[in-house]
Structure formats: structure tokens, C-alpha cells
């Protein structure tokens, strides 16, 4: 059950992050246009923000809330909604497994962050292929973090 909860919540979390990336890409392009306007390179600027990622994020938030309620089997406190929904700490064993998973996720970031910084150094090349590529490269960090968290939960919770 702990593994199912972690898997489902991480998938929703990741989908929400993709929506943030989508929305931020539009914001990034708008700001490029705005910077050109401010520094006198153009006489007008355009900012077009997509509504779809915001709607999807709202749906994810509602679905996550109801899943959290279902998994915990009781009323969800305000504090619980502020924590990552994949956290499961209903008793001492779950707290111990979650602590191990958090430790491993922390260790994985020690390696992932410098790797992502090096990949970001190639941003000028990637930008020719994908607009605002830096925002998408940053998504590698939660991919590593979530994977490490999920596989630890799966190993110890079965």
C-alpha cells in the first residue's frame, strides 16, 4: 500500500512539474520579448500564457487531496496538505521507511545537482532545439529525487 501510494503520488507530482515547466516556458519566452522591449531592441512585446497547465495543476491538486484522504483513512489536516503527498507516516515502520527514502533521495541529489549544472552549461546548444531548455533540464533533478525515493520505498515496504 505504501509503495502504491508513493508511485501514484509521485506520478501526479511529476505531471504537475511538467505543467510548471510548460507554463514557465511561455513565461520565459514572454520575458525574452519583454527584455528586448525594455532594452530598446523592439517597440512592443508579447506575453501569451497558456491556461491548460494551470487547469491541469488544479485538477491534480484536487485529485491528490482526495487520494491523500483515501490513503490516510481520516480527515486530512492542513499541515498534511503542505507535505509531499507521497509521504506515508502512519506508524513507526512507515516513518522509518520514509526516513530511509528521504536519506537516499538526499544522497542522490548530491550527485544529480552537479550533473545538472554541467548539463546546463550546454544550454546554448539545447536552446537551439528546445525553447527555454534550462527549465526542462532542471526537471532532471526531481526525476532523480523521485526515482530514488520510490525505489527505496519499494525495496523496504514491499
Amino acid at each position: 500500500m505504501m509503495t502504491n501510494r508513493a508511485g501514484l503520488m509521485i506520478a501526479l507530482n511529476f505531471l504537475a512539474l511538467v505543467c510548471v515547466g510548460w507554463f514557465s516556458t511561455a513565461l520565459y519566452l514572454g520575458n525574452e520579448s519583454f527584455a528586448a522591449f525594455v532594452f530598446g531592441e523592439t517597440e512592443e512585446f508579447f506575453l501569451s500564457l497558456p491556461l491548460t497547465p494551470l487547469v491541469v495543476m488544479l485538477i491534480i491538486a484536487v485529485v491528490s487531496y482526495f487520494l491523500l484522504k483515501k490513503f490516510s483513512g481520516r480527515k486530512v489536516s492542513f499541515k498534511a496538505t503542505l507535505l509531499p503527498p507521497e509521504f506515508s507516516e502512519q506508524d513507526e515502520r512507515e516513518k522509518e521507511i520514509t526516513a530511509r527514502a528521504c536519506r537516499n533521495a538526499y544522497v542522490s541529489l548530491t550527485y544529480a545537482v552537479p550533473a545538472v549544472i554541467i548539463i546546463l552549461a550546454f544550454e546554448p546548444v539545447f536552446n537551439r532545439l528546445i525553447p527555454a531548455s534550462a527549465l526542462w533540464i532542471l526537471l532532471l533533478i526531481p526525476i532523480v529525487q523521485f526515482s530514488s525515493y520510490y525505489f527505496t520505498i519499494r525495496k523496504y515496504a514491499g
Binding site: D91, R93, A157
Partner: peptide
């Protein structure tokens, strides 16, 4: 009775 999950 001991306030833990069945899995524990």
C-alpha cells in the same frame, strides 16, 4: 489495538 497498520 496497538495503533499501527496491518502491514507493520
Amino acid at each position: 489495538k496497538v495503533n499501527v497498520t496491518r502491514q507493520t
